[in-house]
């Protein structure tokens, strides 16, 4: 069979909603796009542990501490499934981690913002996990089987996190003036970065057409962003807080909320590494990895010794 035949079989499968599995033939670009996307997603889970982990030691009640620890632990678990899903495309976890540390691989820019007050933990859960879910729900139907299956499990946990985040803000919104101010301030700081999570506008987005054709993506950046705005613009009413956007307004004709323009300069600056915490996040990951090296080496050395002992016995 010629490459064209393989390509046709591949595209037919996608058109018929049959999942692509690791051993199936796939175009090189499909493999690369999925590998880039899944590993980037895995890195985001791992780097994403840092801004939230920042408040574990200071969580304001034992219940909140336990919830936050469990949440950050869930993110680590998501990272694990995603690294495993990415490994099915032929790259080891070690190589992916090296690419993260060298700056070659990206992770979601949202984690380059600092968590300054306790309210940020609620805002991250509500807005950041909320935005991530929009994308992830779509990805449960993505064409690459291992990625889609990892997403099904991840989505269940993420929607739980989003509810926890919202509930945590709800308590603040009904609390003292200081708590309400803290809540509003966190929303003000996280709103625009959360909108940026959906990526560039459709007109600026590279690779999007091909990703749609291969059903890696099923909705465009702008569609998902709009869906998110519509959801949050309603939910914030329950909190009695405001989104920091004067242009936010229900448009009866479109049956959607209109909203203001994202600061794209800021978006690109953070992507390029100039966000408030880009350096700290990568430094923290590298430090953990370097300081863990002797531990990993010892574990390997011990396992080998044990194998030899068993073989000798």
């Amino acid at each position: 069979m010629s490459v064209q035949d393989f390509e046709k079989i591949f595209q037919d499968k996608i058109d018929n909603e049959t999942k692509i599995e690791p051993k199936d033939w796939m175009p090189d670009a499909y493999r690369k796009t999925n590998l880039r996307q899944i590993s980037q997603h895995a890195h985001s889970e791992i780097v994403g542990m840092l801004p939230e982990g920042n408040w574990i030691s200071r969580a304001p009640s034992l219940k909140r501490k336990a919830i936050l620890l469990a949440k950050v632990q869930d993110e680590a678990g998501h990272g694990l499934y995603l690294y495993s899903a990415a490994e099915t495309l032929g790259m080891s976890r070690q190589e992916m981690i090296n690419d993260l540390h060298s700056g070659k691989a990206k992770y979601s820019s949202i984690f380059n913002y600092p968590t300054l007050t306790w309210a940020d933990i609620g805002a991250v859960g509500w807005l950041v996990d909320g935005a991530a879910i929009m994308n992830q729900v779509m990805l449960t139907r993505t064409s690459y089987g291992p990625y889609a299956r990892a997403m099904v499990r991840i989505c269940k946990e993420e929607s739980f996190h989003q509810r926890q985040g919202f509930e945590s803000l709800l308590v603040l919104s009904r609390g003292s003036k200081e708590q309400r101010d803290m809540c509003q301030d966190a929303i003000n700081r996280w709103w625009w970065p959360a909108l940026m999570m959906f990526g560039p506008r459709d007109t600026e987005s590279t690779n999007s057409d091909q990703s749609m054709k291969w059903k890696i993506k099923r909705k465009s950046n702008d569609e998902l962003r709009q869906q998110f705005v519509d959801m949050i613009a309603e939910q914030i009413k329950i909190l009695g807080m405001k989104l920091p956007d004067d242009k936010l307004k229900w448009n009866e004709e479109r049956r959607h909320y209109d909203f203001g323009e994202i600061n794209w300069d800021e978006f690109w600056q953070v992507v390029k590494g100039n966000g408030p915490c880009n350096k700290q996040r990568l430094d923290a990951r590298r430090k953990a990895w370097e300081e863990g090296e002797w531990v990993r080496e010892a574990a390997v050395a011990y396992a080998e010794k044990k194998k030899l002992k068993v073989a000798a016995a």
Partner: peptide, 11 residues
């Protein structure tokens, strides 16, 4: 949490 020597042990 978030700083373990390897992901499985972090968990």
């Amino acid at each position: 949490c978030g700083h373990g020597p390897v992901l499985e042990q972090d968990i």
